[in-house]
Amino acid sequence: MSLLDVRDLSVVFQRRGERPFTAVDKVSFTVEPGQTVGLVGESGCGKSVTSLAIMGLLPKRGNKVGGEVLFDGTDLLKLRPNDMRDRRGREISMIFQDPLSSLNPVIPIGVQVAEVLERHQGRDRKQALREARDLLDAVGIPDPQRRLSEYPHQISGGMRQRALIAIALACKPRLLIADEPTTALDVTIQAQILTLLKQLVDDTGTALVMITHDLGVVAGLCDTVNVLYGGKVVERARRHELFAHARHPYTHGLLNSVPRLDSPRGERLHAIRGSVSDNIPWTEGCAFAPRCDNVVDACLEGPPPLEPTATGGDLRCNNPVSEEVTVR
């Protein structure tokens, strides 16, 4: 059984006096224990909403969540808020993009880590602080004893993200969801954090869901990658397969459009035309059709189904890029 089995997850936002907006549209994916799964897409593709829905952190009003989120066989969406709160931080943890706003500015770092241990593991303050120090040490924060009593604004952005990771990992969760954990950080710090995450996954066997817009981050980290567009998974493949032979025109276009450090200079980038706001509704056809180079008549006759490919992935496309074509 998969550790996390998301089945047909839908999130519809309905604001007063406005048309309902489907942010996540029947998204399904699974995460096995110890696996790293990527959710990749641009702004508005529904990747962050998916993670918030899994964590039960969407606002109570103004949205409708459908489908199932099976964690170890239990549907998290059906849990009572109290039970869910109990699992959050203990079995499933999350780290966010902005480490400064995710930490409480008026509480010392050490206490923030210790509180999780007190709440979920029933440690007393002294024992919790001792463990907090070891955790800070484990995530590579130098001089952890001193940091325990420091406040978030006293440490750098990279250190804050490390502290957040320490909090997330305090109870040895079985699943860690990281929502753009390095986007706010500099490249050299990003490299530190990614390396740390990779080590932690290897050492503790925690499963990781990595949410990012950065294909480079995914390439070095994820076992399986889900590419989202317009709230739906459009392509799913194992890492090497995806980057070598992206089949969906969107994935293919994305890979071809980013400037790469190792690509020869002066070559024109193959931009995808239009912008994310040019989508058409999935009910009319493929949301990507207006921007797609491969569009055929079938693309405007209802949503294409997500079908398994020969290489073990899944693909939602009527006229995919040929398997023989390599990226670049």
Binding site: T188, G216, R260
Partner: peptide, 22 residues
């Protein structure tokens, strides 16, 4: 430190991780 969207490259790379912050 710059990630390259290519697993083959990523797996073979040597990273020089800088200690500490700016």
């Amino acid at each position: 430190a710059v990630p390259v969207p290519d697993p083959v490259v990523e797996d073979r790379r040597e990273r020089i991780l800088l200690a500490g912050d700016l």
